[in-house]
Write a protein that binds this DNA or RNA. Structure first.
Length: 274
DNA sequence: ACGAGCGCCTGTCGGC
DNA sequence: TGCCGACAGGCGCTCG
């Protein structure tokens, strides 16, 4: 499910709350319930429980697709992978079938990590900088410039889709938003990174940021039953639209496999390399 | 260095 | 109705 816009939506939800849930900022953790042990990547369950008890939530951040719950002494890093979601609710609610980890606060609320496919992971670390060190630049950051992007692109010779999905090259893009950004930039997903003219690099840079910003404004995309938070699926141009007419040229959208992922593009607007 | 294949999991959907 | 395969917003690991 979640790519950068969806994770950002969860971050804002945790920070600001909504009509049914308060912000978790300032709450104190009473204890944790680890309902599926594989969820916790590190440390050990025993150390996790001992360390997290009594810590206050001091902030909620995000780096790429990683959700960062800042605690007084540690950071709790949550990766939702394919099917994870975060729920803040009263402790008296019945437990969801796929809850994998629960943080009980000292007030009437809890935070639940719901994760149907069990791919999601959680880390408790005192050194988040080190933990996140291998991630590529944050695409919506002011530090992410076209010049920097050109440099990273030119340092490799890879298909654009592979490149954009690689979190060490650029952080936060997944299968939906790579396809959307490439379509907006009129670039075929198999185009090599080191073959782009600087004009094309610039167009891709703008396209990535526009697509992500628009998706965030719409609370991300809700494609099927997994995630129902957002509206951006209404504005998608290629993803999940095989056979539908391209919004620019009416050609039917094609679907191919790249990196074992369905990849959607317009065969007319996004000409193959060579 | 790069890309392809597979595994990890649970659920939905469409075809027969 | 039931069964069976394809597929799903991710990523780590192998192997050529």
């Amino acid at each position: 499910m979640p790519e950068l816009p969806e994770v950002e939506t969860f971050r804002r939800y945790l920070l600001q709350g909504n009509s049914g849930a308060p912000s978790i900022l300032g709450k104190k953790i009473l204890n944790a319930d680890l309902l599926w042990e594989g969820t916790l990547a590190s440390p050990t369950p025993q150390e996790f429980n001992e360390r997290i008890q009594g810590q206050f939530v001091t902030g909620v951040g995000r780096r790429g697709k990683n959700l960062i719950i800042q605690l007084a002494k540690d950071a709790l890093i949550i990766h939702l992978r394919m099917s994870g979601e975060i729920i803040v609710e009263e402790k008296t609610n019945p437990l969801g079938k796929h809850y994998r980890l629960i943080l009980n606060f000292t007030d009437p609320y809890r935070l639940a990590f719901n994760n149907i496919r069990k791919f999601g992971r959680v880390w408790l670390t005192s050194d988040q900088e080190d933990f996140l060190a291998n991630l590529g630049p944050e695409p919506l950051s002011d530090d992410f410039t076209p010049e920097q992007f050109q440099e990273i692109l030119g340092s490799r010779s890879r298909g654009l889709k592979y490149f954009l999905l690689d979190q060490e090259m650029i952080a936060g893009l997944g299968n939906i938003y790579t396809d959307e950004a490439l379509h907006r930039a009129n670039l075929h997903p198999a185009t090599k990174t080191d073959s782009l003219a600087s004009r094309e690099v610039h167009k891709l840079w703008i396209s990535i940021r526009e697509v992500l910003l628009e998706a965030i404004q719409n609370q991300g995309s809700s494609i099927d039953w997994m995630y129902q938070g957002g509206d951006y699926q209404k504005y998608l141009s290629v993803y999940n639209l095989e056979g539908e007419p391209c919004k620019n040229c009416q050609s039917p959208i094609k679907r191919i496999k790249i990196a074992q992922r369905s990849t959607y593009f317009c065969p007319n607007c996004q000409m193959p390399p060579g």
